[in-house]
């Protein structure tokens, strides 16, 4: 999942801040439950789950980010 985010074009990376939580840790589990996530991997944007149980195609991820933050 982190790889999918790392592979985003620079123009997209410039408008987001990325946090990755490790599900092996208490902190990661706490965050997972706060987001009311159910499956792995999951991506949330602004505390809202957008992708669950899937690594989205890059164009879908870019579209979801642009819908929130671009212009």
């Amino acid at each position: 999942m982190a790889e999918a985010v790392k592979a985003l074009p620079q123009e997209i990376k410039d408008i987001i801040e990325v946090h990755e939580w490790d599900m092996r840790t208490r902190e990661g589990i706490k965050r997972f439950l706060e987001l009311k996530a159910k499956s792995l991997p999951s991506i949330a944007l602004d505390n809202e789950l957008v992708f669950e149980a899937v690594i989205p195609p890059q164009e879908d991820l870019i579209a979801a980010i642009k819908a929130r933050y671009a212009g």
Binding site: I29, F32, K38, S39, L40
Partner: peptide, 15 residues
Amino acid sequence: SNLSDYLRNESVFSA
């Protein structure tokens, strides 16, 4: 314990 609340939280069983 922390994730499944001792198997009581079935919503996270997929994870």
